[in-house]
C-alpha cells in the first residue's frame, strides 16, 4: 500500500520536489488567488481533487492513448473534471467562486496538471499516480497558504477574514500595507519564499 516508492511519490512534492518552488509549475493561479486565505484554501482543495483524479484516469488509460493525440486526451479529461469542480463550487460556495472568477477554469491550463500527467501518470499504475497527485496538490496548497498568510496578514491585518491586528496598533499609527494586496507583491513574496527554501536546500541552488 505505502511502499518506499509510493511514500516518495506522496511526500517528496511537499518540499524537496515542490511543484511551485522547485518544478516552477502552476505559478499563475498560485499568485492570483492568494490575496486572502479563504480563496487560497478552496483553490488548493480544487487542485488536489482535479490533480488526483485526472492522474488516476490518465493512468488507467495510459496504455490505450495514442502518443500523437495524448495532449488533447489529457486536456479533455482535465477539462471535464474542472467543469465538475466549477459546478460544485458555484452550487455550494458561491461567494468564493465569484472571487476566484476565471482561475478555477484556468486549472485546466495549470502546468502542474500537464506536467504531472506527462511525467508520472503516463508511466505509472493508478495507485502511485493517485498518491503523486495528492502529494503535488498538497505541495501546491502549502505554498498557496504561506503566500496568502503573509499577504492577508500584512495587507489587511486579517486572517480568514477575522481581524488579528488589534485596534490599538492602528491607534498608535500602524497602517495596513495596501501594496501587499496588489499583484506585484505576490511575485516578490514567492521570490522570497524560493530564496528561503533554497538557502535551506543547497543542492537546489543554481550557478
Amino acid at each position: 500500500m505505502l511502499s518506499k516508492k509510493n511514500k516518495e511519490a506522496l511526500f517528496n512534492p511537499l518540499s524537496k520536489d515542490n511543484p511551485v518552488l522547485v518544478q516552477i509549475l502552476g505559478i499563475c493561479s498560485s499568485l492570483a488567488v492568494t490575496a486572502s486565505l479563504e480563496p487560497a484554501i478552496v483553490m488548493g482543495i480544487s487542485v488536489i481533487a482535479v490533480l488526483a483524479f485526472s492522474n488516476v484516469i490518465i493512468s488507467f488509460l495510459r496504455k490505450t492513448i495514442p502518443t500523437n493525440i495524448r495532449i488533447i486526451v489529457q486536456l479533455v479529461v482535465v477539462a471535464a473534471l474542472v467543469i465538475i469542480v466549477q459546478q460544485i463550487l458555484t452550487a455550494y460556495q458561491y461567494d468564493v467562486s465569484k472571487q476566484l472568477s476565471v482561475f478555477i477554469g484556468l486549472i485546466i491550463t495549470n502546468c502542474i496538471l500537464m506536467g504531472r500527467l506527462e511525467a508520472f501518470a503516463m508511466h505509472n499504475s493508478p495507485w502511485p499516480s493517485f498518491l503523486d497527485g495528492v502529494g503535488n496538490g498538497l505541495g501546491y496548497t502549502i505554498i498557496l497558504l504561506v503566500v496568502a498568510f503573509f499577504r492577508e496578514l500584512l495587507g489587511s491585518g486579517k486572517l480568514f477574514g477575522y481581524q488579528v491586528v488589534p485596534q490599538w496598533c492602528y491607534d498608535h499609527g500602524y497602517e495596513n500595507n495596501g501594496l501587499m494586496i496588489l499583484a506585484p507583491m505576490a511575485l516578490i513574496t514567492v521570490g522570497c519564499i524560493i530564496w528561503w527554501h533554497r538557502a535551506h536546500n543547497k543542492d537546489l541552488q543554481e550557478n
Binding site: L179, L182, A183, P184, A186, L187, G191, I194, R198, E206
Partner: peptide, 23 residues
C-alpha cells in the same frame, strides 16, 4: 546575486518590480 536567489528567485522579484513600474 546571493546564491539561493539565483535563477528563478530573482526572476520572480524582478517581475514583481516590473509590475510595480507598470502600475
Amino acid at each position: 546575486i546571493p546564491k539561493p536567489l539565483r535563477g528563478v528567485g530573482i526572476a520572480f522579484i524582478i517581475t514583481g518590480l516590473m509590475g510595480i513600474a507598470f502600475m
